Structure formats: C-alpha cells, structure tokens
Simulated assay, not measured.
Amino acid sequence: MKTLLLTLTALVAVGFINAQSEPWCRCALFVSSSYAEWMVFELPEVNITDCNSHDQCKWHCIRELNEMTNDMDLWSTVSNDTVGQHICQDLYSHFIFFIHNSYVHAYYEMCGGPWEYTGLDSQQMLCCDRGEHKHCISK
C-alpha cells in the first residue's frame, strides 16, 4: 500500500512539473509612497528561455519600457497624453487622488517570483491632482 501511495505521489509530481507553462517575464511601472506601492502600468507578458534568465528578462523590460516611455520621460507624449497623465489617470481610477514628488520605478517579475528592480526611474517626479498630471513644485 505504501509503495502504491509513493508511486502515485511521484506520478502526480511529474505531471505537475510537466503541466507548468513556458517560462515568462512581466514588466511594470510602480509608484511608491510611505505606505504603499501601486502598479501603474504593465506590459504584456513575454516568453524567456528559462526561469533562471534574470538578465534576459531585466534587459527586455528595460528596452521595452524605455521605448514606450521615451527613456522614462513623464512629459513625453504617448497616444495623445503624457506618460505621466496615463499614470495619474490609472491612480485616480483606483481612488488615489493625489501624488506629490514621487518617482516612478520599473520592475520585472519572472515565473511568479518576486518583483525585482530594473534600475530605471522616471526622469522627473510625478505629481497628480485628481487624475491630472501636473508639474511638481519642490519644497
């Protein structure tokens, strides 16, 4: 009986491993506050060669995010709005009405692991006032 149970357990484990999907990578932008982190933009998932390809995932994300945001320029125009305006609208849709002097950070995630920092930050600080992208005034 124990042998049968061990054999079934082994077969289930092999089936589970074989049923896992292809390796993948996610890229996203986050805004931080003293109390929370908000994902404000996510690119579509991409395939990578294996779940140990941190550099492959990281560099793919850096390239894609730089292309889509004009090197993390919040005042760059994309689809008739600034990058910052898209972010402010997303935050507003999640009931985050004000952001003041916050940088936007780029992260990547591989195969369901933790989010890891790419080393990219926005060129400017982000300021949002009820969904509107505003110029920041430092104090």
Rank of each mutant, 00 (worst) to 15 (best):
T69C: 07
E132T: 15
N52Y: 06
F97H: 07
T9V: 10
E67D: 14
L8V: 07
F97V: 01
L65V: 15
F16G: 07
K134S: 00
I17C: 05
A106C: 00
N66T: 14
D121Q: 08
L65P: 14
M125L: 01
N18V: 10
L6K: 09
V14L: 14
S122T: 04
E132K: 13
S138I: 10
A13G: 08
T69Q: 04
E64C: 04
A19C: 11
H60A: 00
F97E: 06
Y107V: 06
C27D: 00
Q89T: 01
W75N: 11
I96C: 05
Q85I: 03
G84E: 05
L43V: 14
E37R: 15
H133F: 05
S122W: 01
N47Q: 11
W24V: 12
M110E: 07
C111Q: 09
G131Q: 02
S76A: 03
V83R: 08
T9L: 04
T69L: 05
F97T: 05
D55F: 09
M110I: 13
N80W: 08
T77A: 02
F95G: 01
E67F: 02
Q124L: 01
L43K: 09
L11A: 15
Q123R: 15
T82A: 06
Y92W: 04
Q124T: 09
S53E: 07
Q124V: 02
K134P: 02
G112S: 07
I137C: 04
L43Q: 14
S34V: 04
I48S: 09
T82N: 01
